[in-house]
Design a protein around this nucleic acid. Structure first.
Lengths: 261, 261
DNA sequence: GAGTGGTCTAGACCACCAC
DNA sequence: TGGTGGTCTAGACCACTCC
């Protein structure tokens, strides 16, 4: 007894779509339906209930996977996806008051939102600036920059990867070239070089992740990513950093304020 | 002769993944591979070339569709996806100088970017405010608002749907309740009621579209959407409009500037 | 009508997981 | 060991597009 409607063979809609709709309705029904993390009926049970071939049931499940509603676990079952905790990023997240408290933006925000922050896979090296970065930094193509890559986790789950590019001359001999940038983070070190931060520009987009990103962010097919390319400018209007981030989309809500001017 | 590598049956990787990789490499190869809009080999040709069953080829194709690399057209073939023209939205896109020129934001921007703008499916009615909207407008739950829905097209392709909510009292008796809001658009009419716009807040996220959104935006599976919830405030700090937009992600790049404060 | 992708059937073997 | 999903085979009929 699955307590699901039967499909209508005379309908215009194909059986697999009807099955997908039936399951989708249950997932979206909230309290009366399947809950987050619930196991949905096995393929065998659905085949029996709807009286269709296995591929038909799998096609319905595929549909829902593509919508990001469910995740399959080999040998265990298919489960309603857990919504990750949402990180709400306001445009004052780089405000100086956070740096003054000795905290980098990610840590300050974790404090406020109450999740456990971690940063891992820190990799610092020097190399040529990619084209898009060189453009924004106002450097010659392939000019040498310090490249800082890292991954952010909230409550143990990867939520974002970030790669910062800092002009080589600017970073020379500072903690920017160390894995640990010290209290206040990268921006605090930048300001110590005399480049006081004045404003940021962020370019926001969204797309499907490539396989490598799916891997490093631990996300299943059907989950998009938000891309944010941030450029930091000092009070003289010079671009001092470009930061290229890839965020697990369902885990983020970005908030920006701007004047109507 | 397809000029594609054969699959390795002894490999760890399953045949369908190998086939997907082979095709993906070709698509991403740029000038030497399949170009945007090119037809990739038919299922029959791939079956013959790789010596596999049809479902195996279809699974490979499904994989690439999920990555947003290709689109299938029933009866015609499978094609490398065309990247839509990117609309780059800067945070001054609602600047008063555009309204002063008698143009709504979308039209002003089309002028600058050189695409043909259209607005269709305009629907204006009164109704209760959804919870998220009532919160942001500072209204009681289900308070009456004017609801303006419309769809935007660039060069004939749908790129965005938008639904504006304006407090019922504010819109009463103005062109805000007409399908055509007149020169300068909705914001110009709002200011005529004495509510001079001061600032906006935008909340940006990304997710997979539901079937209905896929339909109205004409997008294929595997394409995410950007969601932007904008709240407009007047000089007294009163929220005068909430606009809920859903944008075809690959068609957009949102740009925001904010101070380091 | 020929070629294309969309859907469905009815099996098979395998890898992973929990007991 | 039994149940789960992952992959593959070898067919079938259909709907759509183009000539």
């Amino acid at each position: 007894m699955l307590n699901l409607d039967q499909i209508d063979r005379d309908s215009d809609q194909s059986p697999y779509r009807q099955i997908a709709s039936t399951l989708r309705d249950r997932i979206l029904a909230g309290n009366e339906g399947y809950q987050q993390g619930d196991k949905i009926p096995s393929e065998a049970a659905l085949i029996e209930h709807f009286g269709v071939a296995r591929m038909t049931v799998r096609q319905a499940i595929n549909e829902l996977r593509g919508e990001g509603l469910i995740v399959s676990e080999h040998g265990r079952g298919v489960f309603v996806r857990l919504a990750p905790p949402v990180r709400r990023l306001a445009s004052d997240r780089f405000a100086r008051r956070h740096r003054d408290a000795g905290k980098a933006a990610f840590l300050a925000e974790a404090d406020a939102s109450g999740y456990k922050p971690e940063v891992d896979r820190i990799d610092v090296r020097r190399g040529p600036a990619p084209k898009a970065v060189a453009e924004r930094l106002g450097l010659a193509n392939e000019a040498e920059v310090v490249i800082r890559a890292r991954r952010y986790l909230a409550n143990g789950r990867p939520v974002e990867t970030a790669v910062s590019y800092i002009p080589g001359e600017l970073a020379a001999g500072t903690a920017i070239e160390q894995a640990d940038t010290g209290p206040g983070g990268l921006y605090a070190r930048l300001e110590e070089t005399g480049h006081i931060l004045d404003r940021f520009t962020e370019e926001v987009g969204a797309r499907m992740p490539v396989a490598e990103e799916r891997q490093s962010l631990g996300i299943s097919p059907g989950t998009p990513v938000l891309t944010v390319l941030r450029t930091a400018y000092d009070t003289k209007g010079m671009a001092v950093e470009v930061c290229d981030t890839v965020k697990v989309a369902p885990a983020y809500l970005l908030q920006y304020d701007f004047p109507a001017r």
